[in-house]
Simulated scan of single mutants.
Amino acid sequence: MTGQGDPAARPQQYVGHTVTPRRKKLAPDPDVRRAIVDAASKSVREQGVRGLSVATVLERARLSTRAFYRHFDSKDQLVAAVFLEMTRSEVLRLKTRMSEATDPVEAVAAWIDGRLDLAFDEEIKAELRQVSLEAQSKSFSVPDMVAPAYGAILEPLIEQLQRGLELGVFKDIIPATAAKSIHGVVWAGTQRQWATNHWDRNEVRERAVRFCLRGLGVAPRVIEELTAGDEAAC
């Protein structure tokens, strides 16, 4: 029989300290997350991504470090959210422009024209140039950071490419792949204009539209009709 002096027979006790229950982690709050992203977006517009400081963002939003980590795991995750937030208004602008098109061919041309605003529209260029450049650089070093924003920009273009494929106006394409190629053509023209600032918009648009639509298999007659205004302007 085990005696009372045997430690194994004694009830388990905790001596010298009190066990406190672990604090339950609060669920994310959409309003708090919005405040953090808004504050971060303002910082990025003023100082760029390199100048983004979590401490400054929280000071601007009047929130604590604990509030930050309830909503984001890292600064990189916050930057990704900022890129996506800034992209939303750009996507809406592109969709509005594309909505005036009568068919997928015109819609693709409208997307190209809308994205060229980054190079030729002074107001849009001032708003998005630096962020676009930084997002492009991050697409190589930290691709996951910009993937959601990049995907959002391409989404309306992919939709029209898919629609055109189903209607037979585009030939033998994979919409997602074609959208990336079109983006590459437009981005190259945009960067060239930023570097030199002496290209004519109509000329850049015509070249981009012709090149991209030919790659999509659009009939030459349709391309000529669509770019006739550009040629007249040149």
Rank of each mutant, 00 (worst) to 15 (best):
I173V: 12
S64V: 08
L167F: 03
D144M: 11
N202C: 12
L154D: 01
R201M: 12
E134M: 08
R22G: 09
F120I: 00
R10I: 10
R23L: 15
K75F: 08
S99E: 15
W194P: 06
S99C: 08
R115N: 05
P156N: 02
T87S: 11
E134W: 07
P104K: 01
V131T: 13
N202P: 08
T87V: 05
A9S: 14
F140C: 06
E206Y: 01
P220I: 10
H198S: 09
T20P: 07
V218H: 03
R192D: 08
F170A: 01
G3I: 09
S89W: 08
R221A: 14
A195P: 04
P21R: 15
E206F: 00
L116W: 01
L167R: 10
A39W: 03
Q162V: 03
M86V: 00
S139I: 04
A208S: 15
A195M: 09
A109K: 00
C234T: 13
A178K: 00
D76I: 03
A135V: 06
W187Q: 12
H17A: 13
A228P: 01
S132K: 04
A179L: 05
H198L: 08
G217R: 06
A147Y: 02
L154V: 08
P175I: 01
E59I: 07
K171H: 10
E106C: 04
L161S: 02
Y14S: 09
L58E: 12
Q77S: 11
L118G: 06
R33C: 12
P175Y: 00
M86Q: 09
L161F: 08
R23H: 13
T18D: 15
A55E: 14
R201K: 14
Y150D: 08
G229V: 12
Y14V: 13
M98E: 02
E166F: 04
S64E: 11
A233V: 13
T177S: 14
A107T: 06
D113K: 01
E134H: 10
T20W: 15
S181Y: 11
R192I: 07
K25M: 15
G168H: 12
A228N: 06
R214I: 06
E225N: 12
V131D: 05
Y69K: 10
T102D: 13
K95G: 09
L167C: 03
T177W: 04
R129T: 05
H71C: 05
R33P: 02
H198K: 09
L52Q: 07
L26F: 07
M145N: 01
K171M: 04
C212Y: 00
V186N: 04
R45Y: 08
L118C: 03
F170S: 01
G114I: 01
